[in-house]
Amino acid sequence: MAITHAIPELWSAKILTEFQEATIFAGLANREYEGEAKGGNTVHITGIEPIQVKDYKAAGRTTSADAVTDTGVDLLIDQEKSFDFYVDDIDAAQAKPALMSAYTKSAADGLAEDTDKFLSALLIAQGTAVTGLTAVTDAATAWNAIATLKKAMRKAKVPASQRVLVMNAEFASFLDENDSKLMKANEFASTAGLRDASYGKLLTFDTYDSENLPETSKPQIVGWHKSALAYASQIEKTEPMRAQNKFADRLRGLHVYGGKVIRPNAVFHWTAA
C-alpha cells in the first residue's frame, strides 16, 4: 500500500510515541521548557536569586526592602538529526503495511539512542564528580557508591523527591549479584521492579540501567534531580513520498532538539578509575 496519501501529522505522532517509549534519559528530563522547539531556536530560562532572611529583632524591629535579582540560562535547540529510507513496492506487497511500521519503529529507536547519548554526556560533562570512593568490586561497594551520591545530594540540599539514578551494565552487574541488598529485598517480592530498565527505588533514587552512558567498559553512575536536566524536542518535518527513480515509497523526517544542565549543583556522578 502506497503512503503517498499519508497524513504527515499522523506519521509524526507515530515517531514521537515510539521515541518516548524507547528512551531513558529524555524520559527523566525536565520537559516544561519545550514550547515551540524549532531548529536554531533558543529557549531563555529565567532563574531567581535567594531572598535574604534578616534578623528583625536585631535590626531594632525595622525592615527595608532588597532589590531582587535574577539569573538566566539559554537552552539551545541546536541538534538536528534525520532519517530517510525506501521501502520497495515488491517488499511492501509481500509484507504489507507492517513493513513500513517496522522501519518507522527502527528510525524511532535510532532517534532515542541518539538523544540518550547526548543527554547522558551532558550530565557527565556538566555535573559534579564524586571523589573519595574506593573501587567498586562487588555488591557492597556498589551499594556504598550509591549511598555516597545520596550523601552528596543531601549536602547540596537537593530535594529527596524526583531524584533519579542511571547506571551502566558494568555497575548494574554488581547489584544483580544474589547476595546484594537489592536482591535480598526482592527475594519474596514481585520482580516487577527489575523488569526492563527499572531497578525500582534505591536509597531515594528511582534507578535505571542504560548502555547509553558515555562509559561502557567500566562502572559508571549518574544521579540527578529531574528539574536539573532541561530537554526540548520536536519532530520538525515528516515527508512521505514516492521515489523518483524506483518503484518504492520513501519516508524521511527531521528531529530537532536541545538539552542543558540547568542545575549543575543537583547532578553528581562517579566513574571507576
Rank of each mutant, 00 (worst) to 15 (best):
M1A: 14
P8R: 13
E9V: 15
L10F: 04
A13H: 13
L16K: 00
Q20M: 13
E21A: 12
T23I: 13
F25H: 03
G27W: 00
A29E: 08
E32Q: 11
E36Y: 09
N41H: 14
H44N: 14
I45N: 03
G47K: 10
I48K: 06
Q52Y: 14
K54P: 03
Y56D: 12
Y56R: 06
A58K: 05
A58S: 03
A58R: 05
A59R: 15
G60I: 15
T63K: 09
D70F: 06
G72V: 09
G72N: 06
D74L: 06
D74Q: 09
L76W: 10
K81D: 09
K81T: 11
F83N: 05
D84T: 12
F85W: 07
F85K: 07
Y86L: 11
V87N: 01
D88T: 14
Q94M: 15
Q94K: 13
A95T: 07
A95E: 08
K96A: 07
A98K: 10
A102N: 04
A102V: 12
D109P: 06
A112F: 01
A112M: 05
D114S: 10
T115H: 00
D116H: 03
K117T: 08
L123I: 04
I124H: 08
T128F: 05
G132I: 12
L133I: 13
V136K: 01
T137Q: 06
D138A: 01
A140V: 08
A140E: 15
T141D: 15
T141G: 01
T141N: 05
W143I: 03
A145K: 04
I146P: 00
I146T: 01
I146S: 02
L149V: 12
K150C: 06
R154F: 14
A156S: 10
Q162H: 11
V164Q: 02
V166R: 02
M167R: 01
E170F: 07
A172P: 00
F174W: 11
S180M: 08
K184G: 13
A185D: 12
N186Y: 06
E187N: 14
T191A: 10
A192M: 05
G193V: 14
G193F: 12
R195N: 08
D196N: 15
A197C: 15
Y199R: 00
G200C: 11
K201Q: 08
L202G: 01
F205C: 00
T207R: 00
Y208G: 05
E211L: 10
E211T: 10
T216S: 14
K218C: 15
P219G: 02
Q220N: 05
V222Q: 04
G223A: 12
G223V: 06
G223I: 05
A228H: 00
Q234P: 09
Q234Y: 07
I235H: 04
T238S: 07
A243C: 11
Q244P: 08
F247V: 00
F247Y: 14
F247S: 10
A248K: 03
D249Y: 01
G253R: 10
L254M: 08
H255A: 03
V256I: 08
V256E: 06
G259L: 01
K260L: 11
V261L: 02
I262S: 02
I262P: 11
N265W: 06
H269M: 10
H269R: 15
W270T: 10
T271F: 00
A272F: 07
